[in-house]
Design a binder for these strands. Structure first.
Length: 645
RNA sequence: GCCGAUGUAGCUCAGUCGGCCAGAGCAGCUGAUUUGUAAUCAGCUGGUCGGGGGUUCGAAUCCCUCCAUCGGCUCCA
């Protein structure tokens, strides 16, 4: 007999070799019907795999992300089987579950597949699912595995087998499909009741652009048809939040082919919004001891040769600008840091001067690949809310923490609650990708990790994601469709000070090298506005929104009173517009609602007589009658609490 | 850059197994209306159907090519 411990600490005894499914059944039939897989001693396994020793056991259902993972992974197998049915001879790469659904990378050879094929594949999948095929796990020797896929002529599976050790290889077979797979899988395919193939894309084998590009098919599946329908509705809703759509509707920004790809044009309302964000950050930074600087949009090529950026990115950048002077070349600046280094060098620095915190809303230009451009989140010209902190080595951690505080304050003020903090370290096996000494790298990495610990941040450490000159900490936020974007970034850099030979005089009267911290709490104004727009679905916080109020005169007769109202509100620092069109109030309200203007102030005969306004809040409706002063106080209170530290 | 899909008026879209002058709603303009909490009415303007090339008696519709957009991949100082 073996002892099985459940999450509630209860322990039960079962004969050795009992499966998780049998155990679930012994507890309740209802539970057994919902079990997708089981977590045994922290390893997720098939529900119908025997358990042979004492263990902890947790049943995984649709409620757990691990349960969903099993469900979707099995769905990927089901899809592969259906595709093999329609496209015999297709070669299969990998087919994992992902956060929302699954995909399979497939080499269709000379054949092409398009989304028009989705319907029949989905139908076939459901047809096969109804057969309730079990997933049969079997351990195979490497030799047998190689023999199987050689006979099947699937070079991708053979490639994968290359990296696997004999003795650790398992096959899963369900229906007519056998796959090299570590599992785990569902008890049977019958649990998959609803399937939708979502899109098709190219994906390089093993993520390497030198390899062949396979066809990746994304899909999602559910245990109930209703859940699929809900998911599709949710996707539609998310699309409505897309910053590209909202940006157009709210007249914030636009693009023009004549101006150039990926070069955003900020419209008046967008410029207003951005200006307010910049003013907000400037104020925060001033309080934190930053100084503002301004540098030009171009710099001599030599500047970037010195910084190392030219060697690393020169080929893929906007190419140097020539001048009438033979041999003289300038570059559109891809980074602000080299300019700032030169400002640092403009006078001798003492240890007493440090840290110098040099900030600039610096516009930079990078030639992103055309396929990468994406609304405001990925552009070729953008403005970083950049700053470089030049400090003594003993100040690094403290400065780093100071920056974290600014980022967290911004996130709190704008109600970004769902973000991840990623610490990016260098890949120790690929050191030639980076510049700088081992010693400095180790030190910088250690300090970032310590700073994160001191601030109690939950971080994800990713090896190999560091910038070429130093490790970094990034604050990542998701957009409406769940894609992750990097916003805030903090990077420790021991290398540029070397390259630019930056110095300060220590209290020992000797020259020392400062450390640089690059940081941008928004990341870039463009990306931040994009993510903010999606985050608040276009309903910006009152302090930030371009127009806080729309004064709505009931008829032309009250336009003068409306003007008066707005003028009085302006005195209270409240900004807005008057809708003086000869439209009915209902129409003006509808338009203001669609423009997501926070407050609509309806004025007619009653209000003019009493010197009041009727206040309607966007998305909520009529709040009743206010005096101008009362309303101004309401607004200013709302703003004050939003900006509280 | 790569794979796939898409491209019709400022916006959202209809029209496409080739065939009368390419349509609608919204927006815009003109006029009427003077309006009380999510769309007042009428008239008008607006499109080399993404660009170029080809097939055809005839192309928004079929083919080729380029460009752009969308979804991914790769990349992201």
């Amino acid at each position: 007999m073996i002892n099985v411990t459940f999450p509630d600490k209860a322990v039960r005894q079962y004969p050795e070799g009992t499966t998780a499914m049998e155990i679930a059944k012994s507890i309740s039939e209802g539970l057994a019907r919902n079990v997708l897989s089981a977590k045994v001693n922290d390893e997720v396994i098939d529900a119908n795999r025997p358990v042979i020793s004492d263990c902890k056991m947790e049943f995984l259902t649709w409620e757990q992300q691990d349960g969903k993972a099993t469900f979707w992974h099995s769905s990927a197998h089901l899809m592969a089987e259906a595709i093999e049915f329609f496209f015999p001879g297709a070669k299969f790469g990998i087919g994992p579950n992902i956060e929302n659904g699954f995909y399979y990378d497939i080499d269709f050879g000379d054949r092409t597949i398009s989304s028009e094929d989705f319907d029949k594949i989905e139908k076939k999948m459901l047809e096969m699912a109804r057969l309730k095929s079990t997933f049969n796990r079997r351990e195979v020797s490497k030799m047998d595995a190689i023999a199987y896929f050689t006979q099947k002529d699937d070079s991708y599976k053979l490639d994968l087998l290359n990296d696997l050790a004999d003795g650790s290889i398992t096959f899963y077979e369900s229906g007519n499909f056998t796959d090299l797979c570590r599992g785990p899988h569902l008890p049977d395919t019958g649990m998959i009741k609803a399937v939708k193939l979502l899109n098709i894309a190219g994906a390089y084998w093993r993520g390497d652009e030198h390899n062949k590009q396979l066809t990746r098919i994304y899909g999602i599946s559910f245990p109930k048809q209703k859940e699929l329908e809900e998911y599709l509705v949710m996707l539609e809703e998310a699309k409505k939040r897309d910053h590209r759509k909202l940006g157009k509707e709210l007249e914030l920004f636009t693009f023009s082919l004549k101006v150039g790809l990926g070069l955003p044009l900020w419209l008046p309302k967008g410029a207003d919004l951005r200006g307010r964000l910049e003013a907000f950050l400037k104020k925060v930074q001033k309080k934190a001891g930053y100084v503002q600087v301004i540098t030009p949009h171009i710099g001599n090529k030599e500047l970037y040769v010195t910084s190392g950026h030219y060697e690393k990115y020169g080929k893929d950048s906007f190419q140097p600008i020539k001048t009438p002077q033979e041999g003289e070349e300038f570059m559109l600046k891809p980074m602000n840091c080299p300019h700032h280094c030169e400002i640092y060098k403009s006078k001798p620095r003492s240890y007493k001067d440090l840290p110098v915190r040099m900030a600039e809303f610096g516009t930079v230009y990078r030639y992103e690949q055309s396929g990468e451009l994406h609304g405001l989140t990925r552009v070729r010209g953008f403005t970083q809310d950049d700053a470089h902190l030049f400090c003594r080595p003993d100040q690094v951690k403290e400065e780093f923490i100071g920056v974290i505080d600014i980022v967290l304050y911004i996130f709190k003020t704008l109600e970004f609650k769902d973000y991840t903090v990623q610490v990016s370290l260098r890949d120790p096996n690929n050191k030639e990708k980076y510049i700088g000494t081992d010693e400095n790298w180790d030190k910088a990495e250690k300090e970032i990790i310590e700073a994160a610990e001191e601030k109690g941040l939950k971080t994800v450490v990713v090896v190999g994601e560091a910038a070429f000159y130093g490790p970094k900490m990034d604050f990542m936020v998701r957009d409406a469709l769940g894609r992750q974007w990097q916003l805030g970034t903090i990077q420790v850099d021991y290398n540029l000070p070397e390259r630019f030979e930056l110095e300060y005089t220590g209290n020992d009267n000797q020259k020392h090298r400062p450390v640089m911290i690059h940081r941008a709490p928004f990341g870039s104004m463009e990306r931040f506005v994009a993510v903010l727009l999606e985050h608040c679905a276009g309903k910006f916080p009152l302090w930030l929104t371009p127009d806080q109020v729309m004064v709505i005169p009931i008829s032309d007769k009250y336009i003068n009173y409306a003007k008066n109202v707005l003028k009085l509100l302006n005195n209270y620092e409240i900004r807005g517009l008057i809708d003086d069109r000869s439209e009915k109030a209902g129409k003006k309200i509808r338009d203001a609602e669609l423009q997501k203007i926070p407050y609509m102030l309806v004025v007619g005969e009653k209000e003019e007589a009493d010197g009041t306004i009727s206040v309607r809040k966007q998305g909520q409706g009529d709040l009743g009658t206010f005096t101008i002063q009362n309303f101004a106080e309401l607004i200013n209170e709302e703003i004050k609490s939003a900006l509280a530290e």
